[in-house]
């Protein structure tokens, strides 16, 4: 009887301890990677390769996501605001929603799917085929070579991607506003910029930098710690995408509280 009562508690305790251990592991991994960013040598070639992979090759998927999000947002807010004759607020709602929230969050989720998975799969394969051990035997620190350049690349690339997403999202809203909903083009754009403040954009870019760091951190950490061949690499890839997606959404709330809480 006692065992029946205590078993779920023991399981809960194990789960909590396991979560604490993972959080500690990830934290130490991140600190070590950051320390390598501050100490030479730095692998600029690898940084550039990762930067191009994150920024340039993610551009199409982020652009499409942003344009369609802007279009849908304009359409939805127009039909909603029409109920109390507030259609003129569509442009400002679109731009504020995009710059503060939807731009950084949706772009980061797309990048988490593309880049988080790619980092985890590449580094995970290197782990299970002894390539990471080989790096050590070839006088190269794997954290410095594999992790640090990717972390920096994603942290810098995401704000740039989000800036593009903001612009394209507003353009998507403007397209629907002017060609479908009957707004005058100049009036729509004026309304967009009249209500937009620098903080809206900056807070979104700061969020993007944090999310970029998180995507790269989870991708590299999961890959670096993968075990057990193809199945282990597959599991690491899934975990990287799921964990970074959840962390993006959770941290989005935390950062919003920090930036905008009254």
């Amino acid at each position: 009887m006692g065992a029946l009562i205590l078993d779920p508690l023991a399981a809960l305790g194990r789960a909590v301890l396991g979560a604490c251990r993972v959080a500690g592991d990830v934290g130490l991994f991140a600190l070590e990677a950051i320390s390598h960013l501050l100490r030479p040598p730095f692998y600029w070639r690898l940084f550039w390769r990762a930067f191009v992979e994150v920024a340039w090759f993610s551009l199409p998927v982020v652009a499409l996501t942003a344009i369609f999000t802007g279009m849908v947002l304009a359409l939805q807010s127009y039909t909603g605001f029409a109920r109390f004759n507030a259609q003129s607020a569509v442009a400002s709602v679109v731009v504020i929603s995009l710059t503060r929230e939807l731009g950084p969050v949706l772009a980061s989720l797309m990048v988490a799917g593309r880049i988080g998975a790619a980092f985890a799969a590449e580094i995970g394969t290197m782990r299970v085929t002894d390539q990471i051990d080989a790096l050590t035997t070839l006088s190269t620190n794997p954290m410095k070579y594999l992790v640090a350049p990717r972390l920096l690349a994603a942290t810098i690339a995401l704000p740039l991607l989000v800036l593009v997403a903001d612009i394209l999202g507003v353009m998507g809203g403007w397209l629907i506003g002017t060609f479908k909903l009957g707004f005058v083009s100049a009036a729509y754009l004026k309304s967009t910029f009249d209500y937009l403040e620098a903080d809206d954009v900056i807070s979104g870019l700061v969020k993007a930098a944090v999310f970029g760091f998180i995507v790269a951190l989870m991708g590299t950490w999961c890959g670096y710690n993968s075990r057990g061949g193809a199945q282990g690499v597959g599991g690491a890839t899934t975990t990287a995408v799921v964990a970074s997606s959840i962390l993006i959404l959770a941290l989005d709330y935390v950062l919003t509280e920090i930036f905008f809480a009254q």
Binding site: M126, T129, D130, Q131, D133, A134
Partner: peptide, 8 residues
């Protein structure tokens, strides 16, 4: 290394 561990 056993499997070469070349960087692919």
């Amino acid at each position: 290394f056993q499997n070469g561990a070349l960087f692919d």
